[in-house]
């Protein structure tokens, strides 16, 4: 047990050390969400705005963009495993007396910390977008971001556990992560879309993460356009519960897949 905790802490420690030292990574993880916010916000405001009664399109999109930032940095934690495997450092970790599940949880914890920091930095934009923030909201947002990023890191590690090359990982990102991002309700509500799209959106864990953050930010107006499952509109707590369950499942499979000795 002690080896699991030590594994968790050393891996998370290194993750944070790397994050602090790579300033370009901090910047680049904001670039894409910000780009979407500005371009989509300006371009679709009038068109999609009609689908989101009571809220401005940018206000609608903004909470989702925060979730997207978390998704990006969580997936990056998977990429860093593939990177370590390619550059040999993974061997140093694997041959050390550390519990395998600790290594997976450490990766997830490290990237969750990074994701929370990035999510909070995104809050700086709130006043410019006309989204009102209260200290309570920020306090509630932090555990939410931690839960979302832990479970999405589970996904990242799971993909990475069997990947040998960065190219392979990039392809998986293209065919899994990109659709996940677009079909999560970040850019448009997923209630009034073709059935096939609605089905995919509603088995997408990110959808519930986005919905939880949106309802937290927009209150009553957010609930009115919230995700419905079989006619029932999800509450924040139910959204979070879905993410927690998915996270436990994903992290368990990731640990199992990663620890299987070759």
């Amino acid at each position: 047990m002690e080896e699991v905790f030590r594994g968790m802490w050393v891996v998370a420690y290194r993750e944070l050390l790397r994050f602090v030292q790579e300033r370009s990574r901090i910047f680049s993880s904001f670039a894409m969400p910000l780009l979407f916010l500005v371009i989509f916000g300006a371009g679709f405001n009038r068109i999609i705005g009609a689908m989101t009664p009571g809220v401005d399109y940018i206000q609608f999109m903004y909470p989702g963009i925060i979730a997207m930032t978390v998704l990006m940095s969580s997936v990056m934690s998977g990429l860093s495993i593939v990177w370590d495997r390619e550059f040999g450092f993974l061997k140093e970790i694997l041959v050390a007396p550390l519990g395998r599940s600790g290594i997976v949880l450490g990766k997830a914890a490290g990237s969750a910390t990074v994701a929370v920091i990035q999510g909070i930095v995104m809050l700086v934009l709130a006043p410019f977008l006309g989204v009102s923030l209260s200290p309570l909201m920020v306090i509630e947002l932090i555990p939410m971001l931690i839960i979302i990023s832990l479970s999405l890191s589970g996904l990242g590690v799971l993909i990475a556990s069997r990947m040998r090359s960065q190219q392979g990982f990039q392809i998986i990102v293209q065919i899994i992560i990109m659709p996940m991002m677009f079909l999560s309700g970040v850019f448009f509500p997923v209630n009034n879309v073709p059935t096939w799209m609605e089905v995919i959106s509603k088995i997408n864990p990110l959808t519930y993460g986005v919905d939880a953050i949106r309802q937290l930010f927009l209150g009553q107006a957010g609930n009115a356009i919230g995700v419905t499952v079989f006619g029932h509109t999800m509450t924040i707590l139910q959204d979070v519960l879905v993410v927690v369950i998915l996270g436990v499942v994903l992290l368990s499979i990731a640990t199992w897949s990663f620890s299987k000795q070759e």
């Binding site: 050393v10 290194r14 550059f87 061997k91 970790i93």
Partner: peptide, 20 residues
């Protein structure tokens, strides 16, 4: 094959090992 973290310093690599 080399198995160092190239983005960390020599000292940080050793310290990581010491923690592990």
């Amino acid at each position: 094959e080399p198995a160092l973290d190239e983005y960390l310093t020599a000292e940080q690599n050793l310290r990581f090992h010491a923690y592990a």
